[in-house]
């Protein structure tokens, strides 16, 4: 997927306004792209790169389905401009699995049934990855606080908390 050329953003809307060239490292792969200034990071990922693992839920900064890691920090990519990611690292759900092996957080969500419909899951997992990187041994309360910006309308969060605890144990932490 890496490209040395600078393709135009294949946006559902034609580019009308000002553009910027950005250099972004996504899941360890560097990209150079020309984007319209108003392009949101989530649309850049989904429409320009075809990386549809990152979901758009509410589009109003509430639900967290679009959560990605920007320089290892979880943010809502529907409320970040693609140009704001210039020169930075982005990690998406596609970057969790490596060499055919699921990330411990993905294992946790699978084993503990941390999802029903799956819509919130990519964002929920990215927030979980960031939490465990900062706090490998979170209490249940710390987990619930950390995921309070990610809405799930199916599970009641019980199995999501279990999934994150599972991942913490698998990674060597876990209370």
């Amino acid at each position: 997927m890496a490209s040395t050329a600078i393709p135009r953003l294949t946006s559902p809307l034609p580019i009308r306004g000002a553009t910027h060239k950005i250099h972004v490292t996504i899941n360890d792969v560097p990209f150079d792209f020309m984007v319209e200034d108003r392009t949101l990071l989530v649309h850049f990922l989904r429409d320009a790169l075809g990386m549809t693992g990152t979901h758009i839920g509410c589009d109003t900064t509430h639900c967290g389905a679009c959560t990605v890691l920007l320089d290892d920090v979880p943010v809502k990519s529907c409320t970040v401009l693609a140009v704001q990611a210039d020169g930075r690292k982005v990690r998406t759900v596609e970057g969790l699995e490596s060499g055919g092996k699921l990330h411990p957080v993905q294992e946790g969500f699978t084993t503990e049934h941390g999802l029903h419909c799956g819509y919130c899951t990519p964002g929920m997992m990215m927030t979980s990855v960031a939490l465990l990187a900062k706090n490998p041994n979170p209490t249940e309360e710390e987990i619930r606080r950390a995921i309070s910006g990610n809405l799930c309308r199916c599970t009641g969060y019980v199995n999501i908390v279990k999934a994150i605890q599972h991942a913490a144990k698998a990674s060597g932490g876990g209370k």
């Binding site: 000002a18 108003r38 529907c78």
Partner: peptide
């Protein structure tokens, strides 16, 4: 799907 995109503007990062 209709996407919610800001109106056009020029971005500067001084």
């Amino acid at each position: 799907m209709t996407e919610v995109i800001p109106p056009e503007f020029e971005y500067h990062a001084p």
